[in-house]
């Protein structure tokens, strides 16, 4: 079991190295897809089917959005010029970070032996107190629903931000002379350009 997890994690590491270092943006995006799908199998093996389902579906959407960003623009490959100073400095600092991470990992509790002071109560009483047999849902929507409303707020804000950035016309219809003055796109322009997504 642990061997299998190790192999999957190594595939993830290799996939992210390819995603970082390749010149072609499209193959980089596809390597991110490899990392994400391996991650969902890791979640499934670690006893988290809720997150495995969510990760698979979200990964498909992440691929759709990233391919949308790369494929419609003209230059999908990167010219080679590197900032050597930034690369060397960041490699030194991240090497140091990895050394300290290795030391810190020795101090955490062993893999497979978690500290479950709070969760023990949720596991023992969750089904009786909330009536939901899926304990993750009962934590998400009953014990810690306040976290979830914060999450809904963040999602709402980011979607509103994306709309504001992407929308070129205001929602209110302008008068004709305004359109001529500012050069705002009208409906014909918008209809022209969907089929080649």
């Amino acid at each position: 079991m642990e061997i299998f997890l190790l192999i999957l994690t190594l595939i993830m590491v290799i996939g992210s190295i390819i995603a970082i270092e390749t010149r072609n943006l499209l193959s980089s995006v596809i390597s991110v897809g490899v990392v994400g799908f391996c991650l969902s199998i890791v979640f499934l093996m670690l006893g988290a089917p809720d997150i495995a389902i969510t990760q698979v579906v979200v990964e498909i959407l992440i691929l759709v959005i990233l391919i949308r960003a790369t494929i419609t623009t003209d230059n999908t490959s990167i010219e080679k010029h590197k900032d050597t100073f930034a690369v060397v400095t960041s490699l030194i600092f991240f090497g140091l970070f990895l050394i300290f991470a290795f030391l810190a990992v020795q101090e955490i509790h062993q893999f497979g032996d978690p500290l479950m002071r709070v969760s023990q109560k949720y596991l023992a009483d969750g089904a009786k107190e909330t009536g939901a047999t899926n304990i993750v849902t009962s934590v998400l929507l009953d014990y810690r629903a306040y976290d979830t409303i914060g999450e809904a707020t963040v999602l709402f804000t980011s979607i509103v931000g994306a709309f504001v950035i992407l929308r070129r016309r205001g929602r209110k219809q302008r008068k004709e002379k305004d359109v001529e003055k500012v050069g705002i796109l009208d409906d014909e322009d918008i209809k022209k350009d969907f089929g080649g997504f």
Binding site: P49, D50, I53, T54, V57, V58, I60, L61, G131, A132, T133, N134, V136, T137, S138, L140, L141
Partner: peptide
């Protein structure tokens, strides 16, 4: 969502898909 794995997040994204 309250009986089996899943829930609002996963189901909403599946419908959107």
């Amino acid at each position: 969502g309250h009986l089996t794995p899943g829930g609002g997040f996963a189901g909403g994204i599946i419908l959107a898909c």
